[in-house]
Design a protein around this nucleic acid. Structure first.
Lengths: 176, 176
DNA sequence: CTACTCATGTAAATAGTTACATGATTTG
DNA sequence: CAAATCATGTAACTATTTACATGAGTAG
């Protein structure tokens, strides 16, 4: 699909930044629906530069440390906006190792099945707490605010985790 | 992670079957949390055979058409059951192209943003209907039934889709 | 006899992870 | 001065997708 390309173009559309900054975004805000390591980002930035969709200037931090600050070209912005506007078919259901385990869980003892569910539930409750805290920092934003997209997806992530926890609790209850 | 390996071993643990059958499972029941094409399955079955985790016998359908029926070896079953019993750390949030688009959606006109959401919602409502119909065929199963895992994950898939539809409806409402 | 399903594979390309490799800058 | 963070890259491997390739069996 080449989605990484558009994730990067979209971040650069918001503000010019380095590969390192992009990697940092993928480990924080965006990590609730996309991620990529620097080892994937740097080569992609090279390809985007070669394709003329982004350019960079070199900044020096301190005495020598180089920092390549990337920004979109006209063509890059056009490409991004045209991707953003596409009505795509929905993605196949995401892969989920835990659900796979539950699918096969009739082969476990009731005790072990419950232990696995409890372990999963604990971790998802932590994630949910973290997300809720983040969400609080966004009061209800108007739809015109440039950060409205952030708010929508964060709200979606909270709902997703809440439902997942809820499902796990039901699984526990039904196996007791 | 090598999850495909355990998905295949788990299916073979349920009953002996061919690569073709496994591929069919990945396009139906299991597709709500895992999938793989036959081009990934056949090479994996070869590797599992070489590793001594599965064996096969050749069946002939009709006059000549060969069908390799795979089953678990003792070692294969041990390996599968030990994987099944592992308490693993939760997976990173799944990648989701639509959420990525929504994250950037401040760059769209309100009309286009709404059109994208409505398009997504229609498709997820269809998927939800299909899942609900499937779920009806499972009455409440006792936790001891070998098909109880199927029931749990199907219930989880319904909840996941319901929440996703719910989120999309909220997105629509808040942008109007 | 045509279209669909059964059945098995390989090849080539893209996507993604983990490890290797290096060195500067900042903070405590 | 040690540890964390800033900063950029490559190499090797694993995972996944799409396309190529072939042919038998079945139902209408």
């Amino acid at each position: 699909m080449g989605t990484l390309k558009y994730a990067i173009l979209g971040l650069l559309d918001q503000k010019e930044q380095s590969g390192y900054d992009i990697a940092a975004s993928f480990s924080s805000s965006i990590s609730d629906f996309w991620n990529a390591n620097h080892s994937q980002i740097y080569p992609e930035l090279r390809r985007l530069t070669e394709a003329g969709l982004v350019t960079y200037r070199v900044e020096i931090s301190g005495q020598v440390l180089e920092r390549k600050v990337y920004s979109l070209t006209e063509e890059g912005r056009r490409d991004f906006l045209s991707w953003l506007d596409e009505e795509a078919p929905i993605a196949p259901s995401p892969k989920d190792v835990f659900r796979l385990r539950m699918f096969f869980s009739a082969r476990l003892s009731p005790e072990r099945r419950q232990a696995l569910i409890r372990h999963e539930l604990e971790q998802h409750r932590d994630r949910l707490e973290r997300l809720k805290e983040k969400l609080e920092s966004y009061a209800l934003l108007p739809a015109e605010d440039p950060r409205f997209g952030d708010y929508l997806v964060l709200r979606g992530a909270v709902m997703r985790e809440e439902t997942h926890c809820c499902w796990l609790e039901e699984c526990l209850a039904e196996t007791m």
